[in-house]
Amino acid sequence: MGEPQAKHDVFQAIADPTRRRLLKLLADQEMPVTVISGHFPMSRTAVSKHLRILSEAGLVKERRVGRENRYRLDPEPLQEIKHWYAYFERFWENKWAALQHFVELDDPDQ
């Protein structure tokens, strides 16, 4: 027997620009794949594959309404990115402070 298919993590899911655009599109409203695919220059099948990856990462929720599936953003998994960014932001802040100090030292008007 084969191993179950690995779920995509949040970082893998947002690595693709099309999937980032999908998240923005779904941020404000729930939409069926037929409407979503009208916003992209690709087939409905290709859009569905991107939605599946986002769903496996927990970023998109799917709901059956009649004969269609509707998709909406679930922002909760984005907290992982926020925490990662916050951890590394301290390094950037240190670099900005050092650059500001260097520029101020080199400024002949001071």
Rank of each mutant, 00 (worst) to 15 (best):
M1C: 13
P4C: 05
P4S: 12
A6R: 09
K7L: 14
K7H: 13
F11E: 04
Q12M: 13
I14G: 04
A15G: 13
R19D: 01
R19Q: 03
R20D: 12
R21F: 02
L22W: 03
L22R: 09
L23M: 05
L23T: 09
L26N: 00
Q29M: 09
Q29N: 13
M31A: 04
P32C: 03
P32N: 08
V33Y: 00
V35F: 02
V35T: 12
V35I: 09
I36G: 00
I36V: 01
I36A: 01
G38H: 12
M42C: 05
M42R: 13
M42W: 02
A46D: 01
A46S: 10
A46P: 00
S48H: 03
S48N: 10
S48I: 07
K49F: 06
H50F: 03
H50P: 06
L51M: 01
R52D: 04
I53N: 05
L54H: 02
L54T: 08
S55D: 12
A57W: 00
A57E: 00
V60E: 00
K61G: 07
E62N: 11
E62V: 10
E62I: 11
R63E: 08
V65H: 06
G66N: 02
E68F: 07
E68R: 15
R70T: 09
R70A: 05
R72N: 07
L73N: 04
D74L: 15
D74C: 09
P75Q: 11
E76G: 11
E76A: 15
P77Q: 04
Q79S: 09
E80V: 11
I81F: 10
K82T: 11
W84M: 08
Y85S: 14
A86K: 09
Y87W: 06
Y87T: 12
Y87R: 15
E89S: 13
E89R: 10
R90C: 02
F91T: 08
W92C: 04
K95H: 14
A97Y: 11
A98C: 06
L99F: 15
H101V: 08
H101L: 15
E104M: 14
L105Q: 15
D106V: 14
D107P: 03
D107I: 03
D107M: 04
D107Q: 10
D107E: 05
P108H: 02
Q110N: 15
